[in-house]
């Protein structure tokens, strides 16, 4: 599949934003985040900025961005529509939680866990809907399996954790718990991604050139002549091939930069002080971002679509 930059940015940025907010609420409920307004502003500001930037970016690849509001109408059948609705709905509890934290002096009342829980549920559901836009497409076997939503959720949590850990360091409320949670989430995300890659390598083909043409009873089917010399929309959108050539190298980049480097630098920062700690934190954010983008680029670029069976592919 063609890896559109706007969609890569949308899924990674909004995922990190929701991950950051959900973990912030969790840590807050656990009493690990100081009630200072500066902390609320920083965490919620960054989280909302990432989400809004992601959502805006997702409209850039539309043929008619001015009609984007129409996408909120078909939530009964369409995951894309559900994603749009959930993204808007989640601003409610998330905004309310942030606001309550700013204006209510003592939050240790019964409704804080309730509001926090609702905010977390909304964040998780929105990321799930994003994943299911892709996970519901039977035409792309690499995506239409349960590992896809698990992967999106794990990546959102891990990238959010890197950001929360960085903010905790910079604003002086870092604790072993936050560092440990970040490390564990990174390990989980890495494991899920490795399972995903194993799966797309080992999965039996769902459709073949024979089933696509129905000519399998007669023998092996090969494309003899394409409908035309040049590329058409279907081939450029569904037949992206460049990355498959470099898939192994890109996977290594995603694994090292996306998980191992952040894991090491997050851990190392816990033992360092001053400028060294800041350096490690910067490394964890930058490498995490590069790795996450590589992972998402691969998610699209590696996925094969059934339509290419009509253009020379043997199986998907």
């Amino acid at each position: 599949m063609h890896p559109a930059k706007s969609v890569i940015f949308f899924t990674t940025a909004s995922g990190a934003g929701y991950g950051l907010f959900a973990l912030f609420v969790l840590m807050d409920l656990a009493g690990l985040v100081p009630p200072a307004p500066a902390v609320t502003w920083t965490v919620c500001g960054l989280s909302f900025a990432l989400i809004v930037a992601g959502l805006l970016s997702s409209t850039f690849h539309l043929g008619h961005p001015e009609r984007a509001w129409r996408a909120l109408s078909q939530w009964r059948s369409s995951w894309l529509s559900r994603e749009g609705v959930m993204a808007i709905v989640s601003f409610g509890p998330m905004g309310a939680y942030a606001l309550a934290r700013l204006i209510v002096p003592d939050l240790s009342t019964a409704w804080q866990p309730a509001l926090g829980g609702l905010a977390i549920a909304c964040a998780v559901l929105t990321v799930y809907c994003t994943a299911m836009i892709y996970g519901s497409l039977k035409t792309i076997p690499a995506w239409s399996n349960p590992v896809t939503p698990v992967g999106y959720l794990a990546m959102a949590a891990a990238s959010g954790a890197i950001l929360l850990n960085a903010i905790a360091f910079l604003m002086g409320f870092v604790s072993p718990q936050i560092v440990n949670v970040t490390a564990i989430l990174l390990l989980i995300a890495m494991a899920v991604k490795m399972i995903y890659w194993r799966r797309i390598r080992d999965a039996a083909p769902r459709s073949t050139a024979e089933s696509a043409t129905g000519l399998g009873d007669m023998g092996k089917v090969h494309l003899f002549e394409a409908p035309h010399d040049g590329d058409n929309y279907l081939m450029t959108e569904m037949g992206f091939r460049i990355a498959r050539k470099h898939a192994f190298r890109l996977r290594r980049i995603a694994l090292m930069w996306g998980f191992l480097f952040p894991l090491l630098s997050v851990t190392a920062a816990g033992f360092a002080t001053g400028i060294m700690a800041s350096l490690f934190i910067a490394i964890s954010v930058v490498t995490g971002a590069v790795g996450l983008l590589a992972e998402r680029f691969l998610f699209f670029a590696e996925a094969k679509h059934t339509v290419m069976l009509y253009y020379g592919d043997r199986s998907v």
Partner: peptide, 16 residues
């Protein structure tokens, strides 16, 4: 008149 050009339908169609 109401299509936003998100192209998701083309991804969902097995047949192109």
């Amino acid at each position: 008149d109401t299509c936003i050009g998100c192209k998701l339908c083309s991804w969902a169609c097995p047949y192109g």
